[in-house]
């Protein structure tokens, strides 16, 4: 069973087609990153997933249940764009309300535990109105986890949180995924964060999915064939000139001890390495250069930019 499955979802809001033909699947155990510029349709997609908006057409399921079923969300936790906390209640009271909604047994222990997880136990009895943005976001995350959900849907969980707070939030997310085997679906503007924690991604722009798949594979596919070879010492000028003259090696640049090649068809990396070794160069390391998510992201958004 897939954790999330969207099949050709479209959504019209007013005159505007906010989502058109959006399809992707989130598998169990995934940490799925949902990327896109402002106004791309991320929040709208999440609202459809959580039964808050009805798709104009298409089919969406969450943990195997159609999203229109209210019971489908019993095992889903979420943090929406606005944290949804009650300012006039304490952190504990906010969590109590949700434990009752989910009909949990032994809520007190669980509340204690999730507050511990997000390091808010000492502020449990303070009104949420007195919390800072980062604390609110952590509490919202705690609330999303109170009922031990199988799937977490998070709309920009680290928005407005300081770097150390972001690291803590990431830590919690990774723990949920790796130690407890939960599935995470998160939308984000933070490419670095997505690159660090997600295994699969989808990129949406103006309501259409532009890119979707395994992050590593996407990076490999989009990286071309560049190779970086690090040497113990910077190579001598004559050798550099010789390498440059061998156009099939495709020497791109030398930066300090690092040589970047984009070899032509038929040239294998070991060929370059043995050539260098043959010239008495000591090799420190060889790595295929991977496109960063940032590069992929901006390349794709440029592709779709109207000319």
């Amino acid at each position: 069973m897939d954790a999330i499955r969207l099949e050709a979802i479209s959504k019209q809001l007013g005159e505007r087609e906010v989502l058109s033909d959006v399809s992707f699947t989130v598998k169990q155990g995934d940490i799925f990153g949902y990327l896109g510029p402002n106004g791309a349709g991320k929040t709208t997609t999440i609202r459809i997933l959580l039964g808050l908006l009805q798709p104009t057409s298409g089919k969406a399921t969450i943990l195997g249940d159609d999203v229109s079923r209210d019971e489908a969300r019993r095992k889903v936790g979420f943090v929406l764009e606005s944290d949804g906390l009650y300012d006039n209640k304490t952190a504990e009271e906010n969590l109590w309300y949700y434990t009752r909604i989910y009909g949990m047994a032994e809520p007190a222990e669980r509340i204690d535990r999730v507050l511990e997880l997000v390091e808010l136990r000492d502020r449990a009895r303070d009104k949420v109105g007195t919390y800072s943005k980062g604390m609110r976001q952590r509490l919202a995350l705690a609330r999303a986890m109170t009922h031990n959900p199988e799937l977490l849907v998070l709309d920009e969980p680290t928005a407005g949180v300081d770097p150390s707070g972001q690291m803590e939030v990431r830590e919690v997310i990774l723990n949920m995924a790796h130690k407890e085997g939960r599935t995470i679906f998160l939308s984000s503007h933070n490419l670095d964060e997505v690159q660090r924690i997600c295994n699969r991604i989808a990129l949406i722009d103006r309501g259409e999915i532009k890119l979707y798949g395994e992050l590593e594979q996407l990076q490999r596919e989009r990286s071309g064939n560049e190779v970086e070879i690090e040497t113990t010492e910077a190579i001598a000028e004559p050798l550099l000139a010789e390498l440059k003259s061998l156009s099939r090696l495709g020497l791109r640049e030398r930066k300090g001890n690092i040589l970047t090649f984009a070899p032509q068809e038929g040239v294998r990396i070991p060929d370059i390495v043995s050539l260098l070794v043959g010239r008495g160069v000591e090799i420190e390391g060889v790595s295929k250069k991977e496109a960063s998510l940032e590069e992929i992201y901006s390349a794709i958004l440029k592709e779709v930019e109207p000319s």
């Binding site: 039964g51 209210d70 969300r73 606005s82 906390l85 909604i101 989910y102």
Partner: peptide, 14 residues
Amino acid sequence: AKGPIESLLATPLT
């Protein structure tokens, strides 16, 4: 206005 209702509706509540 502040958003709690949206979170409330994202639970199994009808």
